[in-house]
Amino acid sequence: MDPKQFLTTSGVIIVAGKGGVGKTAVSAALAMASSSVGLRTLIVEVEGKSGLASLFNSAQFSYSEIQLVEPSLGVGEVRARTVLPEDALLDYLKDHGLKRISGRLVSTGALDVVATAVPGISDILVLGKIKQLERSREFDLIIVDAPAAGHAITFLRSASGLEDAVKVGPINSQAKDVLALLNDPTRCRVLLVTSPEETPVNELIETAYSLEDEVGVSLGPVVVNGVLPELPGLQANPLEAAAQAGVELQPSEAQNLADAALFRLQRTALQRAQLDRMAQELPLPQLLLPYVFTSELGPDGLAQLSNGLLAKIRDLPDPSRS
């Protein structure tokens, strides 16, 4: 499938996954991929203090947009901002005639009371703000780095919950608008991210079903981050492999090679089992991103991930030809 077509299937992509699986790295890689095919891209962070900014060697994002990648020939601009619950709530109250006392809303703690009195109100306002950004048509793609794991479901479920709870008034219409966004596959999709390991895979499967059933949001392919490439040569005995290449190995060196190979083979076997199981239990295509052998993902690693993502998107079947 053409990456540009894939990335513009919906104007908003929400990236969600359990903590530690690399959801943030995938959001960043997706933004780079989108930029590289010329799309004007916005990254939205909805929780404070994620690693997103440092992946771009940028200062922490804030409520006002900043530029991460300059537009140039064939390269789309990448911008980033936060939409944090408290900002969104404050914004909303200001828009509804409470501007004069917004300072007091915070200082008296009234904001906490409102957020507790109407559960989900902050979430719906965050999503409402995202909808507003989507409607402005200023960007070809908006990538939302969703809250981690369990909270992602609550976050996305806030709209249907509030539509029921608050029957009339501005919150109700806000909820309706957000639901319309979430339920329209041409406007919004969720990409779920996991690593090829048992617990994250279990959690992903559960999340996938509850998002479809309870939120009615359309799911894109599953992104599996950190997939170790299989190396068939590891099956061979190091001494024989060396003989074949015409060299002789020190016993300790042969032992290190054998240990490293065994370890890798065990891990790839576990990984394969999890990917197969996920394919059986969840009928979604999988985009497998290669493991980046670094403990600190910098611009190089990000480029590697983004290229890997583009390659896997190209491998997806072309919907127009099916």
Partner: peptide
Amino acid sequence: GTPLGEQYQCLAEAQHL
């Protein structure tokens, strides 16, 4: 391109990480 090469690659990746 040989099995030995892949074995060294595997070791190199592990050690680098």
